[in-house]
Simulated assay, not measured.
Amino acid sequence: MTLFRLDASIRTDGSASREIADLVEQEWLASHPGDTVVRRHIGVDVLPSDAWALAVSTAFTPESEWTVPQREARALATTLADELTGADAVLLAVPLYNFGVSQHIKTWIDLILTARPSSEPILEGTPAVLATVRGGAYGAGTPRAGWDHSTPYLRRILADVWGADLTVVEREFTLVGVNPALDAFTDAAADMHRTALDEARVAGKALGVA
């Protein structure tokens, strides 16, 4: 069995999305000792910013006329798609940046869509966990309600376009303790942290037996 894990945080140490994903992965490995985890950390090993445009251009250019950069971009898109579709389970750790998805995860998705058109449910029935975190609070009734433009988009791509059997584990207020303006929410943030870690363990166990 193979688990594909994608990290999109620009941090390695202290990453809140990574903390959640680590617990999910640990629970999956407990059910699959010795099995394979394929990793890609696009927040650190960044995909080329021009790769998507180059890969798209191959659709309008005879293959015999592809340039070296075009061939490399198309090969990268195919590699990314194969990594994802070759897995039995999928784990993505994606933080909210500036109210939306980062360039890293958007490039990854766009490249895969050049290799596997949106009409193909490439993850049909594949169990997947999305670990996502937000620095503030974006729930109903908060001043920033509706400002999270990342999670709905990722649900749309992963579940609706690609057909994954998706579970989302979320944590908010990760900037409490970092931004003094949020000190009043210390207790609420601690509760959200504990809940997210508990949900990560549950999601990991479910992923392991799916």
Score class of each variant (00 low, 15 high):
3 L>V: 04
5 R>I: 03
7 D>P: 10
8 A>S: 10
8 A>D: 01
10 I>L: 15
17 S>G: 04
18 R>K: 07
18 R>C: 01
19 E>N: 01
19 E>D: 10
22 D>H: 06
23 L>R: 15
30 A>M: 08
34 G>L: 00
37 V>D: 05
40 R>D: 06
44 V>W: 04
45 D>C: 04
45 D>I: 03
46 V>W: 12
50 D>A: 03
53 A>F: 10
54 L>D: 09
55 A>Y: 11
55 A>G: 07
56 V>S: 13
58 T>F: 04
63 E>Y: 07
67 T>F: 05
68 V>S: 14
70 Q>E: 07
72 E>F: 07
72 E>S: 05
75 A>Y: 05
77 A>L: 02
79 T>D: 15
81 A>W: 09
88 D>C: 04
89 A>S: 13
93 A>F: 00
97 Y>G: 10
98 N>V: 05
98 N>S: 04
99 F>A: 03
100 G>D: 12
106 K>C: 09
110 D>P: 11
119 S>H: 13
121 P>G: 08
125 G>L: 06
125 G>P: 09
126 T>F: 10
128 A>Y: 14
130 L>A: 09
130 L>Q: 10
140 A>T: 15
142 T>F: 09
147 W>V: 01
148 D>R: 04
149 H>L: 13
149 H>Q: 13
156 R>F: 15
159 A>C: 09
161 V>K: 03
163 G>H: 05
164 A>P: 06
169 V>L: 03
170 E>Y: 10
171 R>H: 05
172 E>P: 03
177 G>A: 01
178 V>W: 14
182 L>S: 08
188 A>R: 14
190 A>K: 10
191 D>N: 11
193 H>G: 11
194 R>W: 10
194 R>S: 13
194 R>G: 09
195 T>E: 13
197 L>A: 07
200 A>H: 02
203 A>M: 02
204 G>V: 09
206 A>S: 15
206 A>M: 14
207 L>M: 06
210 A>K: 08
210 A>E: 08
